[in-house]
C-alpha cells in the first residue's frame, strides 16, 4: 500500500469536490435538513415538556448526516470517473485497486466528518443558547453527546463502503447515488428509532452496534475490492 498514491487520489478528489457545484450543493443542503427539523422541535418545546425528552435522544437524529452525506458523495467515486473517461488513465498507473478505493473513501470521510461535527456543534450551541433551559438540560446529555461523537465516523465508514461498492458496480451516476442513499437507509432508520425512543438506547446496544460498525469500517475495503473489476470497468464486460 503506497501512502503517496492514496494521498494523490485524496487530494485530487478534494479539489474536484470544491469545483463541482452539485457536490457542494449536496454538502450544503443535506446537513441543513437534518439540523433544522430537530431544532424546530426542540425550540418549540415549552419548559414543562422537558420531561418527555428523558426517554428520547433527539440529537441522535442528526446521525443521519454522517450516514447519508458520505453515501451520496461515495456514489460518485468510481462511476463518475468511468463516465468522464478518467478511470482508464488512472488504472494505467501503478496504483492498486485497494489504494484507489482507500483514497476515494478517505476523500469522502474527511468532508463528511467535518460537516457532521460542524453541524452538530452548531446544533449544540443553538440549543444551549436559545432553547428553554430545562429543555436544553434534557437534550444535552453526556451519553448522547458521546454517542454522537463516536458513532459519527463509524456510520460514515459504513455508508462510504456501501456507496463505493455501489459506485463500482453502477453504470450511471444518478442510479448509483439513489442506490447508495437507499443502501444507507437501514442505518438511518435504526438511529431514528433510537432518537425517537422506539428502540431504547442501552450501553450494551451501543457497544454491540459500535463493534459491528468498527469491524465493517476496518474490513470494508476487503469486501469492496473484489467488486472493483478493472476489466468490467474498462470494457463493460465481465472478466
Amino acid at each position: 500500500m503506497s501512502a503517496t498514491r492514496v494521498r494523490a487520489i485524496v487530494l485530487k478528489e478534494l479539489r474536484e469536490y470544491r469545483r463541482n457545484g452539485s457536490i457542494v450543493a449536496t454538502m450544503a443542503i443535506l446537513p441543513l435538513i437534518f439540523l433544522i427539523e430537530p431544532l424546530i422541535q426542540i425550540f418549540s418545546l415549552p419548559a414543562a415538556s422537558a420531561g418527555t425528552l428523558l426517554h428520547k435522544a433527539p440529537l441522535l437524529y442528526m446521525l443521519g448526516i454522517p450516514t447519508l452525506l458520505p453515501a451520496a458523495l461515495a456514489a460518485y467515486s468510481v462511476v463518475s470517473e468511468r463516465q468522464q473517461g478518467t478511470l482508464e488513465p488512472v488504472l494505467t498507473t501503478p496504483i492498486r485497486r485497494e489504494e484507489f478505493l482507500l483514497g476515494k473513501a478517505l476523500a469522502v470521510l474527511a468532508p463528511g466528518l467535518a460537516l457532521s461535527y460542524l453541524v452538530f456543534g452548531a446544533a449544540i450551541a443553538s440549543i444551549a443558547l436559545f432553547a428553554q433551559s430545562a429543555v436544553a438540560s434534557a437534550v444535552l446529555r453526556a451519553p448522547e453527546l458521546v454517542a454522537q461523537l463516536v458513532f459519527t465516523p463509524l456510520l460514515a465508514g459504513l455508508s462510504i463502503w456501501v456507496g463505493v461498492a455501489i459506485s463500482a458496480r453502477s453504470n450511471d451516476t444518478r442510479v448509483a447515488q439513489q442506490l447508495s442513499v437507499l443502501g444507507s437507509l437501514p442505518a438511518v432508520v435504526v438511529t431514528a428509532l433510537i432518537a425517537f425512543g422506539v428502540i431504547r438506547p442501552t450501553l450494551g446496544l451501543a457497544l454491540g452496534l459500535g463493534a459491528g460498525l468498527l469491524f465493517v469500517d476496518v474490513q470494508g475495503w476487503r469486501f469492496v475490492s473484489p467488486m472493483f473489476d478493472r476489466e468490467r470497468l474498462i470494457t463493460g464486460t465481465k472478466s
Binding site: R7, A8, I9, L11, P89, T93, P94
Partner: peptide
C-alpha cells in the same frame, strides 16, 4: 498542473 500533480503522485 493539478492533473499532472495527481499522476506524478500515482507514479510516486
Amino acid at each position: 498542473t493539478e492533473n499532472l500533480e495527481c499522476f506524478a503522485g500515482l507514479y510516486e
